[in-house]
Design a binder for these strands. Structure first.
Length: 929
RNA sequence: GCCUGGAUGGUGGAACUGGUAGACACGCAGGACUUAAAAUCCUGUUCCCGUUAAAGGAGUGCGGGUUCGAUUCCCGCUCCAGGUACCA
């Protein structure tokens, strides 16, 4: 019988499912090992060839750990709340729960086809009420908690109330809003309920805060940055502006320091750790307050600076246009200009503002602040290079030391004051800390470190400032004006948020008639008319963001069916934390930071034992897609039209590129009819063609539903089988490297599996192995692979294992080896990579069917690999000239003699005197002449 | 813009700690088997020069540097990708 992948793979997949081969136990005498994949969002396009890359790698690792004797937990589930399902619901009217369930079945089928060794009895879905009741429960704990800096951990809000009751606000060391009130215990007792709630909300870890969002008036909703392209909505091309809105937020900044120090304890790729460090962005500097006497005696503009030493170089203050004080500071004469400027910036997204460093813009408010040290008048400006969300939303501009300040001052003709004798200001700022200060009053002549000390002391003495640590990271916005997410378990009473009772969880998502905002601009949940808490109080209408459900899911797998707790103490104490986590680096600062935050919070409250949830982490690179684009023509006011221009003619128009499904594009030519059906708003699309055809542009970028560039694995499995797909995805290259998808080399892997099959079969295709003693060459081939594969798997170098398997099978084929003793061991070594074919061969060899995953990985014996000779490459002046075979027993001096005595070597030396001979035993000889 | 990666034959990639660049595959070319095709097998395949061969020269995105020796380390660029806080 020939290698029949379809029959073999179906047979074993059924066997594994029927026998629950990979079901993990929460108790075992074996050591535990938890291998986790980042769970997928089940998109309508199905699993694409990028997903399995990580799943196959983790599966190989999990199967390897099993044959190495571990009790392995290897679960899978679905991050099933999300924007695409909602978008689809808006288009089709179908409930997202229905499409999501259908997508999940499809994913499951596709995952099963790959032969992954998941314990499906522990599956989770974030959109399942039995799951999200615990997401809501965690939210309630966060709402009911504050961060006590004295104990350096989160505590139940009760401990804060007790403090207020006994000592008032004095002595409270908390991470909180800035505007907390000072009061005595007696005053607290006299507060009304509403006043108490207002004050407590300033401390809660889940709290309400005003934040800036992308508001699209035409769609009546907030858009993700993703959905805004060049300042207009992707859907419909409507204008988008920045708007402030009350939003739920998470006080992740309370954990900034622990998130930072925890990075030193995890085994993660260094670049990823670096990205998180940069995201947290700790900087040590100073807060400085600039009084504004024209407003009121106690009003000051607070700035954060990492270079307080440059304070004498300040020539103006620059505020973000959104800064709270801007309207008060603006004088009558400047009002028109300031308002025009604010309107202008309101159209730009924060990212555009950061990206554009070339255009300098700003407006003078007409007011002046007082320099805290010199008392000089400092003009106050606004400019969009200052971001409201970072620091205090205001900077002291020091043009001689900061390039952005320099450009700003040059542009508006403001004076530039040199502050150090080492500064070189030839057309640019010089941020040097070298030299001694000049033009700087009390720090003249001092060095950097001396100056900082003197200044901090002086500022503290006058109450104008102090040393401060600032983090770039901001509190995370936790509300979404969407339907398809977890309802926030909160209702409003007297305008203040209150938690529902824990016993009332889950708060189930109500049914609504359509998935759009209400006419008055409220989120879709506003459509659920009679949806009231206890029939009378309004529920919170926003839902939780995509990252809520994924910030704790690894715990649910430990105890997936527990209806009394998110995870039982027994289960969490057994599995502790994830030993190996595999997923894409695109989650570096989102998911991985939020998960660490929630983990630390749950630990503070005693629900989980570990400070860090993911001990070791490996990034799989992305399998990239090749996206196709159409080009929407913009009208003279920059609004999107419904006309699309072919790639070659797009330079003649102002256009916005839009992704188009690669499946309706062939050789970069768009199928216009299918495009019109693609989205309702394209039904009447018009086209400017080239030679009667619409040519699309293309780009290599990540494969994702939103980019419409998804290729799925089913066809490959049908044609070549799952074992081939598994090995091919690994063979493509290093796991962590990104690469665009192509199937060019897949034949080679398929041929390899057939060659392997042939080792066990005679020319007629009958199973045929022999039982003689293996010879030295056969043992060498086997032990090379035993060693190589173990080493490769432990360092996650799966691609090199595949090559080595090919070499091994080629060698055994050349040796005409069909000895059971060799082939049986090879089966075990190969089983993590190609589990179906090896299970079949394992059974054919006479082993109990299905026991391969319990077999023990063979012991490596180095004796079989010992060599007595080595073919030394001989270089002359670093250039490889010839090989010379010498016994490995020779010492360096003997090798040198042998090499110089060799007539061929002499020929290369060409009679020139030898200056030096470098001998690296067992490696190389280099003769320098 | 900022943060983080990446770039090696026609293609995917290998070279693990600075030590033979191109393993293993794909593709391509030639050949065997076949009426033919598929499948399988064999040979060749970095580029340039060279009649085959030998011999030689160049070569790991670009420009420099360190070293007996650099794909690997250092400095400066280019291009591509991911992230940039409401995609997940």
């Amino acid at each position: 019988m020939d290698y029949n992948h379809r029959a073999i793979e179906q047979k074993w997949q059924k066997f594994w499912a029927d026998n629950q081969t990979f079901k993990a136990s929460n108790t075992s005498t074996k050591p535990k090992y938890y291998v986790l994949d980042m769970f997928p969002y089940p998109s309508g396009a199905g699993l694409h060839v990028g997903h399995p890359l990580g799943y196959i790698a983790s599966d190989i690792f999990a199967r390897y750990k099993r044959v190495k004797g571990f009790n392995v937990l290897h679960p899978m589930g679905y991050d099933s709340f999300g924007l695409p399902a909602e978008q689809y619901a808006i288009q089709t009217g179908q409930h997202p729960a229905i499409t999501t369930a259908a997508n999940i079945s499809r994913y499951r089928e596709q995952l099963d086809n790959i032969g992954l060794s998941f314990d499906w009895s522990r599956e989770v879905r974030t959109s399942d009420p039995e799951y999200y009741r615990w997401t809501q429960w965690i939210f309630m704990q966060l709402f009911d908690a504050w961060y006590n800096k004295a104990s350096d951990r989160a505590e139940p809000i009760r401990s804060l109330i007790t403090h207020f009751e006994t000592r008032g606000s004095s002595g409270v060391l908390a991470v909180s809003d800035e505007d907390t009130a000072a009061f005595t215990a007696a005053e607290w007792a006299g507060f009304s309920d509403a006043e108490k709630q207002r004050e407590l909300l300033k401390y809660r870890l889940a709290y309400l805060r005003e934040s800036t969002v992308n508001w699209c008036a035409a769609l009546g909703t907030v858009l993700a940055n993703d959905e805004v392209i060049n300042g207009v909505s992707e859907r419909g091309g409507y204008p988008v502006e920045q708007k402030k809105m009350m939003q739920w937020s998470m006080r992740i900044t309370a954990y900034a320091e622990r998130l930072l120090t925890g990075l030193e304890t995890v085994d993660w790729p260094e670049p990823l750790v670096e990205m998180q460090r940069n995201w947290i962005g700790k900087s040590i500097g100073a807060s400085v307050r600039f009084a504004v006497p024209s407003l009121a005696p106690d009003v000051a503009i607070e700035v954060f600076t990492t270079r307080v030493d440059t304070i004498y170089g300040v020539n103006c203050l620059v505020l973000a246009p959104e800064h709270d004080l801007v309207s008060q500071l603006t004088t009558a004469e400047q009002q028109a200009e300031v308002e025009a400027y604010i309107a202008h910036t309101g159209k730009k997204s924060e990212r555009d503002r950061m990206a554009d460093v070339k255009t300098v813009s700003g407006a003078f408010t007409g007011s002046y602040a007082e320099h805290p040290l010199t008392g000089k008048e400092i003009p106050i400006w606004i400019a969009d290079y200052v971001l409201a969300g970072y620091g205090t939303g205001a900077v002291m501009a020091v043009p001689s030391g900061d390039q952005r300040d320099y450009l700003f001052s040059m542009h508006f003709g403001l004076s530039i004051i040199p502050i150090s004798d080492a500064q070189q200001l030839d057309g640019q700022a010089d941020p040097t800390k070298a030299g001694r200060y000049i033009n700087s009053d009390i720090i003249n002549g001092l060095t950097y470190h001396e100056a900082v000390d003197v200044l901090i002391k002086q500022l503290e003495a006058t109450g104008a400032g102090e040393a401060t640590i600032n983090y770039r990271m901001r509190d995370a916005i936790f509300g979404r004006q969407r339907y398809w997410g977890e309802p926030v378990p909160v209702y409003f009473k007297d305008g203040f948020p209150q938690l529902i009772e824990a016993s009332e969880l889950p708060l189930v998502l109500p049914e609504i008639d359509k998935y759009l905002p209400t006419e008055s601009g409220e989120p879709p949940l506003g459509r659920a008319g009679d949806w009231k808490y206890r029939g009378q109080f309004d529920y919170e209408l926003s839902t939780m963001p995509g990252w809520a459900g994924s910030s704790w899911y690894w715990y649910r797998y430990m105890d997936a069916h527990n209806s009394n707790a998110l995870v039982s103490p027994e289960a969490v104490n057994y599995w502790q934390a994830v030993d190996l986590y595999i997923g894409g680096s695109e989650h570096a600062t989102g998911h991985l930071l939020y998960s660490r935050f929630w983990n630390k919070f749950l630990k503070d409250l005693g629900y989980v034992p570990e400070e860090e949830p993911f001990k070791k982490l490996i990034n799989q690179g992305m399998i990239q897609g090749r996206s196709s684009f159409v080009y929407r023509v913009l009208d003279t006011e920059g609004r999107g039209t419904n006309t699309f221009v072919s790639y070659g003619l797009k330079e003649q128009y102002t256009t916005v590129p839009l992704h188009v499904d690669v499946n309706i594009v062939s050789n970069d030519v768009l199928d216009i009819e299918k495009f019109r059906q693609f989205r309702p708003d394209f039904a009447n699309a018009e086209f400017i063609l080239e030679n009667g055809k619409y040519n699309c542009g293309h780009e290599v970028e990540k494969m994702s539903k939103s980019k419409y560039n998804v290729v799925n694995p089913d066809d490959i499995i049908e044609q070549y089988g799952a074992d081939t797909l598994r090995m091919y995805e690994m063979f493509l290259g290093p796991l962590e490297q990104s690469k665009p998808w192509n199937t060019n080399g897949i034949e080679g892997v398929y041929k390899f599996l057939r060659k392997l099959w042939k080792l066990f079969h005679d020319a007629e295709g009958n199973f045929s192995v022999s039982h003689g003693e293996p010879d030295r060459a056969e043992l060498k081939a086997l032990h090379k692979i035993i060693k190589k594969v173990a080493e490769d798997i432990e360092r996650f170098s799966f691609n090199t294992s595949v090559s080595s398997f090919m070499i091994c099978v080629n060698e055994l084929t050349d040796l005409k080896c069909n000895k059971a003793a060799i082939l049986q061991e090879l089966c075990i070594v190969l089983s993590p990579y190609a589990p179906h074919i090896t299970e079949e061969l394992w059974a054919l060899l006479g082993n109990t069917p299905g026991t391969l995953s319990e077999a023990a990985y063979p012991e490596f014996n180095p004796d079989y690999l010992v060599e007595s000779e080595f073919s030394y490459p001989i270089s002359v002046n670093g250039k490889m000239r010839m090989n010379l075979s010498l016994p490995l027993s020779l010492e360096t001096g003997e090798i040198e003699q042998a090499v110089l005595a060799n007539p061929d070597v002499q020929r290369y030396l060409d009679g020139k005197p030898v200056r030096k001979v470098i001998v690296v035993k067992g490696r190389i000889v280099n003769v320098v002449v």
